[in-house]
C-alpha cells in the first residue's frame, strides 16, 4: 500500500524533478565546474585569481579618484543605499495610505514600477535622468538648479540607477507591507490607545514588531535582486561611463558574451550564487524562527 503511494508520488514529482535536474541542477554544477577549469578543461584557480585581482571587480584607486570602484563595491553600494530606502519608503507609504479613500488606485500607480519589465524600467531611468528630455532635470530646472545627463557622469551614474530603481522597487515593499498591516488586529491598537499610548509609540511597539516576518521577506527579496541586478544597468548605462556603474551580473555577461571567456564568467556566476546563498539562508532561518 505504502509502495503504491510512493510510486504515485513519484509519478507526479518525476517530471518536475527531471526538469529541475536538466535546467537547474546540471547547469549549476556545470557552471561550478567551468569556474575551476581553463579553456582546455584542466583544473586551475587562475580564473578566480584573475577575476578577484581585476580592476573590474575591485579598484582601490576609486576611493581616491572617485568612480569606478569595481563591481563588488558598486553592488555593495546598491545594497547600502537601495535596500534601506526602498524598504523604508514602502513601509512609510503603506502606513500613510492605510484606510485612505481611493487608496487602491494610488497603490496600483506606485506598484506599476514593479509590474513593468525591468528592461523597460531601465530605459525609463535613462530618459528620466536625461539632460534634454528627463523629468528629473525638468524638476531641477524649475527649482533653478544645475541640470545634466546624470547617467553620463561617473560620479552620478550609479547613484542615478540606484535612485531610479528605488522608484521601481518601492511598490513591491509597499504592497507586502500593506498586506501585513491588514493582518494586525485592531484590538492591539485599541488597547494601546486606552492605555494612553501615542501613535508614534504604537507604530514602534506594535506595528514594527508585528511586521517583522514581512520585513524579513522584503529585505531578503530586495537583497537578492540587488546582488543580481543586471537589466536596468544593461539598458540604462551598460555599466558606464568607464565602468562607473558596472555591477557583478553585467561583468559576468561581459566576460561570457564580449570576451567569450566562459570560465571567468562562471567564476563571477559562482560568486554571485554564493553571495545570494550567504544572504538568503540566515534570512530564511530568521523567518522560520518567527
Amino acid at each position: 500500500m505504502r509502495r503504491a503511494k510512493l510510486s504515485h508520488y513519484a509519478f507526479f514529482i518525476l517530471p518536475a524533478l527531471l526538469l529541475l535536474a536538466a535546467f537547474v541542477v546540471y547547469p549549476s554544477l556545470r557552471t561550478i565546474y567551468l569556474s575551476f577549469v581553463d579553456e582546455e578543461g584542466k583544473f586551475t584557480l587562475a580564473g578566480y585569481k584573475e577575476v578577484f585581482t581585476s580592476r573590474d571587480t575591485f579598484d582601490p584607486e576609486g576611493f581616491k579618484r572617485g568612480f569606478p570602484m569595481g563591481t563588488l563595491i558598486h553592488n555593495l553600494l546598491w545594497i547600502g543605499i537601495h535596500l534601506p530606502l526602498s524598504v523604508f519608503l514602502g513601509l512609510l507609504l503603506a502606513v500613510l495610505l492605510k484606510g485612505l479613500p481611493g487608496v487602491s488606485f494610488i497603490k496600483s500607480v506606485i506598484f506599476l514600477g514593479m509590474v513593468m519589465p525591468m528592461i523597460v524600467g531601465g530605459v525609463m531611468i535613462r530618459f528620466m535622468f536625461d539632460g534634454n528630455v528627463g523629468v528629473v532635470n525638468m524638476f531641477l530646472k524649475f527649482l533653478g538648479l544645475h541640470t545634466q545627463t546624470w547617467t553620463a557622469y561617473p560620479e552620478t551614474a550609479l547613484l542615478s540607477l540606484i535612485f531610479g530603481s528605488v522608484w521601481l522597487w518601492t511598490g513591491f515593499s509597499m504592497v507586502l507591507y500593506s498586506a501585513g498591516l491588514e493582518t494586525i488586529p485592531k484590538e492591539f491598537y485599541e488597547a494601546a490607545a486606552i492605555d494612553g499610548a501615542s501613535r508614534f509609540r504604537m507604530f514602534f511597539n506594535i506595528t514594527i514588531p508585528l511586521l517583522k516576518p514581512i520585513t524579513v521577506v522584503v529585505v531578503t527579496m530586495t537583497l537578492l535582486w540587488e546582488l543580481k541586478v543586471f537589466d536596468i544597468v544593461y539598458v540604462a548605462t551598460m555599466g558606464g561611463p568607464g565602468g562607473a556603474s558596472n555591477v557583478l551580473a553585467l561583468q559576468m555577461y561581459s566576460y561570457a558574451f564580449r570576451e567569450f571567456n566562459f570560465n571567468k564568467s562562471a567564476v563571477v556566476a559562482v560568486f554571485i550564487t554564493v553571495s545570494t546563498l550567504a544572504a538568503s539562508i540566515p534570512m530564511m532561518r530568521l523567518s522560520t524562527r518567527e
Binding site: A152, P154, G240, P241, A244, E259
Partner: peptide, 28 residues
C-alpha cells in the same frame, strides 16, 4: 572586437565627460 571593443566605447564615454582622465583611459 571582444572585451576591447566594449571597453573602448565605455572609456570614451568617460573621456567625453571627464577629459582630464585621459591617462587612466589610455591605461585601461
Amino acid at each position: 572586437g571582444g572585451a576591447f571593443q566594449m571597453a573602448f566605447w565605455d572609456q570614451l564615454k568617460l573621456l567625453w565627460v571627464r577629459p582630464e582622465r585621459l591617462d587612466t583611459v589610455l591605461k585601461v
